[in-house]
Design a protein around this nucleic acid. Structure first.
Lengths: 249, 249
DNA sequence: CCTTGACTCTGACGCTACGTGAGAGTCGAT
DNA sequence: ATCGACTCTCACGTAGCGTCAGAGTCAAGG
């Protein structure tokens, strides 16, 4: 039976941490003394060590709480997902380091000449070039190469036209949500949808699959994409799916 | 001349972000309309792009603000420091991933047997083993190997004794701060200090240098070390330094 | 002129995981 | 009783915005 301070020392945390964990329900003390002091026992220490271990692996307290309260079989899955998240973070770190290297190289080259102005230009350019890194995880080697090969077709004018067509199409679908998915109107909308998708993918299966994965994960896109590609009403997706299914039947 | 929304779109940020940057003084609008609307111009866009670029490299807003307002020559230094920070983060990520791999392997081995109990043991053990990773950055290859070679000498009883001796010595030094560093008393304290240091380092120069670097960076240690190795009053360091200098003279 | 929808602004609370300080009670030794 | 060390709760703070409420602005249409 330990009081807060000695208990905290055993696991290498602070008393404040124990207060916090108590408050969020992650680790409650076994008992309280008459004066209100928190009293912990050995099984509490075991749980705290588990918390510390999972935290080290990058899981958040809310996640840890669920895991320790739920079916332990989910632990394996949580660790797998977490590893994937850590891999992504590592990739971002490496890119940032690489970007620093580039900026440093440019700085060295520009030594002695209007550094202030040159630095600003260099930094700006680097940032723009790296704005698509977040898409990497949705692509396979094949689909990435194919998208790269079609990149030159994608002029600013074309982008603007397609973007406008998407907006209009989505608006029209929203206005037609009450239609029968098998109706002529729904079928026409579905056909236009498919055409717009294919305008980007070139009809390629790999690229189509990658784009599909990307859009299924729309909630996790960087927030700056919200203006360029707003979240689409789930009812719209549902309607188009049903319209495309009705076409096949 | 742009209003907030169109300006935000140009740089891929949100209006809320612009509000925030205005509020913290990172990026102020050039003007305000009669109605209070923020109005930005092209040089503001250039600055915002720089902000975005530096943010991508992991610098905090406060750092970015200082850099953009100060001597641009400091940018190179800031980027160098930042790269070091990112390397450290990467190392921690890799260790966490490695720890997940180990936990997953143990889970696979223990399949079908009391998973709940086994999982908790495995997780606890892994966390304890990795608690010294943060020290890595202070060591060279040589010093790390030498510390490792002496590890077996470091029994729990010895650790406890040394820890107590450090506490007592520090307390005595604090009580002697008013003494002349050249006095017999000060010299005795300095000698004891040196002996305790050498008890850990074995008198090795590499290890001594590593430990010195580590303690100079005491402010950046993990917070759980605060109980095992409390921050030492700077006056104590100063006194010991002066006492050791007085001995040499 | 009024209405309407889209836009802008400020103020304030929220998120994650604690750190810190204030103020008050508890405990054990003197 | 006093004192020093300890415990507790409450509440504000950190970084970088997101979100919501409420109010004002703007331009187009009736």
């Amino acid at each position: 039976m330990y009081q807060a301070r000695e208990f905290a020392v055993l696991a290498g945390v602070t008393v404040r941490t124990l207060h916090h964990y108590d408050r969020v329900g992650l680790l409650k003390p076994s008992r309280r003394s008459g004066a209100g002091y928190r009293l912990y026992e050995d099984r509490d220490l075991e749980r705290l060590e588990q918390i510390v271990a999972l935290q080290f692996r990058g899981l958040e307290l809310r996640q840890i709480k669920e895991l320790l309260e739920g079916n332990p079989l989910r632990l394996a899955e949580a660790l797998r997902l977490q590893r994937r998240l850590l891999e992504e973070k590592k990739r971002m770190l490496e890119r940032a380091m690489s970007a620093i290297d580039e900026a440093e190289a440019e700085i060295a080259r520009g030594e002695g000449r209007e550094i202030s102005c040159a630095l600003r230009k260099i930094i700006g350019a680097n940032a723009m070039e790296n704005n698509h890194d977040w898409m990497e995880k949705y692509h396979t080697e094949e689909s990435r190469a194919k998208v790269e090969a079609r990149k030159h077709l994608w002029s600013p004018e074309l982008q603007e036209r397609v973007s406008r067509q998407w907006s209009e199409l989505i608006a029209e679908v929203e206005g037609a949500l009450g239609e029968d998915p098998a109706s002529d109107k729904a079928q026409a909308l579905a056909a236009r949808w498919k055409a717009l998708v294919e305008e980007f993918t070139g009809g390629d299966r790999d690229v189509t699959a990658s784009v599909g994965r990307m859009w299924q994960d729309r909630a996790n896109w960087p927030k700056q994409m919200d203006q360029k590609a707003p979240v689409i009403n789930p009812a719209v997706w549902s309607f188009i799916s049903r319209a495309q299914a009705a076409r096949k039947a």
